[in-house]
Amino acid sequence: MPTSPRTMRAILARTPVMPILTLHDASTAGDLAQALVKGGIHVFEVVMRTPQAVAAVQAMREATPEADIGMGTLMTPEDVVRAHQAGAQFGVSPGLTHELAQAIQAHRMAFLPGVATASEVMQARAFGLKELKYFPAQGPVGAAWLKDMSQVFPDVLFCPTGGIRPPHIPDYLALPNCCTVGGSWIVPSDLLNDRDWAGITALAQLASRFQTH
Rank of each mutant, 00 (worst) to 15 (best):
F111H: 04
R6D: 06
D68M: 08
S184M: 01
S189G: 08
G142I: 02
G40A: 09
E78Q: 14
W197H: 11
G162F: 07
P160C: 10
C178V: 15
T97Q: 10
L112F: 05
Y172R: 04
A63R: 15
A124P: 00
T64P: 09
F210N: 05
L203F: 11
A88M: 05
T28A: 14
L157Q: 13
E99V: 00
V47E: 14
P16V: 04
P5A: 11
A204T: 12
G95E: 07
M8G: 02
L173G: 04
F44T: 07
S4Q: 13
W197S: 10
L129P: 03
L175K: 05
A144M: 12
F153L: 07
L12G: 03
L206Y: 10
D155Y: 01
K147E: 15
L206P: 00
F135Y: 08
R14D: 15
S93C: 11
G114A: 09
A124M: 05
I169F: 09
E120D: 06
F210I: 02
A103E: 03
D31K: 13
G128N: 10
L175R: 04
A101D: 07
D25A: 13
V115I: 14
Q105F: 07
Q151M: 12
L112Q: 05
K130Q: 14
L173C: 06
L21I: 11
G183E: 05
M60I: 02
I104R: 12
E120V: 00
T180K: 10
V47Y: 14
L157K: 06
V57R: 12
A13Q: 09
A103Y: 12
M8T: 06
A63S: 13
P140D: 05
S150K: 05
L112D: 05
M18P: 00
V187Y: 04
R14C: 13
H213M: 03
V46G: 09
T15F: 12
M18G: 02
A110S: 15
R108V: 00
F127W: 15
V115Y: 04
P51D: 09
A55C: 03
W185N: 06
S150C: 13
I41Q: 14
K147R: 14
A26I: 01
G139Q: 12
Q85L: 13
Q85G: 00
W185Y: 08
V141L: 15
F111M: 06
W145D: 15
A124D: 01
P65H: 06
T212W: 09
L146H: 10
L206F: 04
D25R: 14
L173F: 04
Q211S: 14
G95L: 06
A29Q: 10
I200M: 13
A35Y: 05
S184F: 00
A67V: 07
E120K: 03
A63H: 14
A144R: 09
E66Y: 04
A56L: 04
F158N: 02
S27I: 01
A88W: 03
V92E: 07
L32H: 11
G87Y: 10
G199K: 15
V80G: 02
L192P: 03
G95K: 07
G95Y: 12
P51V: 12
F153N: 07
C179A: 08
G163A: 08
V80F: 03
Q102C: 08
T15N: 15
L191D: 05
A83C: 09
Q102H: 13
Y172P: 01
M122E: 07
G162E: 02
A59T: 01
S184I: 00
I200R: 11
S93M: 11
A116F: 13
V115D: 03
S189Q: 15
G30N: 08
P176C: 08
L146N: 10
F90N: 05
M75R: 14
